[in-house]
Write a protein that binds this DNA or RNA. Structure first.
Lengths: 184, 184
DNA sequence: TAGTTTGTTTAGAACGTTTTAAACGATGTG
DNA sequence: CACATCGTTTAAAACGTTCTAAACAAACTA
């Protein structure tokens, strides 16, 4: 691979690195994915080590994590004993699936915590007027939190049921062939 | 504040801690906010130190960060020389504003990186057939990325213009008074 | 079977982030 | 003015995470 091509890739890799930091994600996984994605062909572990200048152990661990996510798959290359990996190119489906399951998971967790806190609160027998007042405020706040959480959930469900899929062009018969969008 | 009330709060605080880790956020800020929010009254720095068992320096830095975000405000308490802070309780507006600006920022960053990478790619003069092929694939991938990014942007704009505000009950005259949502 | 090549595991190093304690500065008080 | 009470800053420690090099295991080759 030419040095110039590598540089053009590195621009994207640098930004991905930044974004990962902001979202608390593992950047090696993201970079492996991007390299495979832009390359458009399968690569061996050694090739990835060479390309990203990281240790083989790290590549091994992270490429398998990507495989578990369904982001890459192992492919057989005739005449080589090495493991080759190629990318799942339907990137929008991949992103959407991950975002969806993430939102769902977090919403459930939050709801669970609110409910647990609420139960604990309701089991308290207030000893004086001040405590009764504290409990009242606490209750109001939990109800408010619950309301926000419910709205977010409703929004997500609406989104999930049809709007999102149409807007992003997934699962519709019409949009089966990829219409190209030119840059500039 | 009674031990039982503190325990009921701590349930929520624990979950917030987990969520912060998953999103790469600062958990002290989140915990300060939650404590002030559930308490429903202003607190001094010392009270927060006592409540969360963290150093005063940490409270000082993080409460001011919250203030910059517009999440809390300093209030004057008669007869005390201490700084008291109270929470901005319109939590849904707060969350939405932050999510919105975050999405917008990230989308712009991604677009910028794609464009830069694309420009670098287009300035390359391929020396052989193989390199020409690499560039072609690379170009296709960048176009694909751009398409996803465009769709996400379109979705966000649609969302932002009306749908989100209606669904979440913001900025509408009707929903001005808070309708309570009961838990269980 | 002995020797290679390959992928995986792991103990410790390197790294960045967060937290704290102590120093500091500013402001009020007797 | 001397002292006390705050909030802020900062240097160093504590912490968790990520990365690497080396050991290891498994599969192939001669």
């Amino acid at each position: 691979m030419s040095e110039e091509l590598e540089k053009a890739q590195d621009i994207l890799l640098g930004k991905v690195n930044q974004l990962c930091a902001k979202f608390g994600l593992n950047n090696v996984m993201a970079q492996l994915y991007i390299v495979l994605y832009l390359q458009g062909k399968s690569m061996s572990l050694d090739a990835m080590v060479e390309r990203l200048k990281i240790s083989k152990g790290s590549v091994s661990v992270n490429i398998r994590a990507l495989e578990r996510y369904g982001a890459v798959r192992k492919v057989w290359v005739k005449g080589s004993r090495k493991d080759f990996y190629e990318v799942e190119t339907d990137i929008s489906r991949l992103i959407i699936e991950r975002v969806k399951s993430m939102i769902q998971g977090r919403l459930s967790e939050v709801k669970e915590a609110i409910d647990a806190s609420h139960r604990a609160l309701n089991s308290i027998k207030p000893v004086d007027k001040e405590e009764r007042e504290s409990i009242k405020v606490f209750n109001e706040r939990l109800n408010q939190l619950n309301k926000v959480q419910n709205k977010a959930r409703g929004l997500f469900n609406l989104f999930n049921s049809s709007f999102l899929n149409k807007a992003i062009g997934l699962k519709t018969k019409r949009n089966n062939k990829e219409e190209m969008v030119e840059i500039h």
